Amino acid sequence: MARDITDRPHTWRVVIVDDSRTIQAMLDNAFSKRKDFKVIGFSGEATTAVELIRRLQPDIVTIDLNMPYIDGAALLRMIADMKTVCKIVVSDAPLKNLALAASLIQSGAALCLGKSDLAANPDRFFAQVNAAVEDVRRNRMLYLGANSDFGDRTVAAQVPPNSGGKDFPIPIDEKDRLQFVLRNSLANGERERQFDLVTRHVTRVTGFPVSLLTFMDRDTQWIKSASGLDPGSTPREEAFCNYTIAQGGAFVVANAASDRRFAHFSSVAGPPSIRCYAGYPVTTRDGINVGALCVIDNRVRKVSKQVLDQLAGMADIVAEMIDRRPPADA
């Protein structure tokens, strides 16, 4: 039975997200000493944290800023749709970078504190936490009232072929795109754990059975990461993601079997019998669509705005991961 969110609960239910067991224990001990709080879960990384938070629906989540693979800022974006959860960033040191603090708050943080703040003045630390969670509680009914029905809107993009003799659209900046994926060693089937965490997360939050992260060289689509399907490669002329990287937003195919652009694909006519596809481009800070994050299903279905929003957010995170790492030829 759902709790009446208009009433203050007897205790605030807390999930702690931090890759340090020592810090988890410290925060657990601090919260447990306060009668208004109850710690109900722990996680040491972002993807497992998302699953835990969605399952437990806590009142408060404390988020470590510096975690491996996917950091706290990215985690905030991954749970941005959970408006009724008070998200508190608890960083290693008090945030002195005002631009970073503003960015975290824009991403959904209700409060940014340092772990040293807890040690220096516990009463002040918890007074700030209480004020933040009360603010979120007051906004809950406003949010739920305004967003009780998102609808089930589907975006169906059409891309006019710019083929250069090919049977698929070619991005205008194809030369720059190819140079980028080759220079950064993306056009291959070598698995990378950080990308696998993303595709696993996408299948969980979208409800689609398969999620793929793909990059293409001149002739081949490389499945860099896959959840729900074996990774590998396909000929580029049979890649839905050609259409995704050729435009600036979501690309959706509701029924590939009835779409003349895709009905002849071996992945449509035969296993895995793709029917529905939704993809979003992975765009670098220079504005190049270097790859695509997508979901597929073997049944015809609508694609909701929530699914497209999740793809867009996670594609941004993949782009950030790529932009941060040094080129393979460095």
Results as ranks from 00 to 15, higher is better:
228 G>D: 11
228 G>C: 11
228 G>R: 14
233 S>A: 13
234 T>F: 13
234 T>V: 12
235 P>M: 00
236 R>F: 11
236 R>L: 03
239 A>R: 08
239 A>N: 05
240 F>Q: 09
241 C>R: 02
241 C>Y: 11
241 C>M: 07
242 N>Q: 08
242 N>D: 00
244 T>G: 04
244 T>Q: 00
244 T>S: 10
244 T>A: 00
244 T>L: 05
246 A>R: 06
247 Q>K: 05
248 G>W: 00
249 G>E: 02
250 A>I: 11
250 A>W: 01
251 F>C: 08
253 V>F: 02
253 V>K: 05
253 V>N: 02
257 A>Q: 15
258 S>A: 14
259 D>R: 07
264 H>L: 12
264 H>V: 11
264 H>E: 15
264 H>Y: 13
264 H>C: 05
265 F>T: 09
267 S>E: 09
268 V>L: 10
268 V>W: 10
269 A>C: 04
270 G>W: 12
271 P>Y: 14
272 P>E: 04
272 P>A: 03
273 S>N: 15
274 I>V: 15
274 I>F: 10
274 I>Q: 06
274 I>H: 05
275 R>K: 13
276 C>Y: 11
276 C>L: 10
277 Y>P: 05
277 Y>F: 03
278 A>N: 02
278 A>T: 02
278 A>D: 06
279 G>F: 00
279 G>S: 03
281 P>M: 10
281 P>A: 10
282 V>N: 04
282 V>W: 06
283 T>L: 08
283 T>W: 05
283 T>A: 11
284 T>R: 10
284 T>V: 04
288 I>N: 08
288 I>C: 10
289 N>D: 01
290 V>P: 02
290 V>M: 08
290 V>Q: 08
291 G>H: 07
291 G>V: 05
291 G>Y: 09
293 L>V: 06
293 L>T: 05
294 C>T: 13
296 I>M: 07
299 R>C: 13
299 R>N: 13
300 V>H: 12
301 R>H: 13
304 S>H: 00
305 K>T: 14
306 Q>D: 14
306 Q>P: 08
307 V>K: 05
308 L>Q: 13
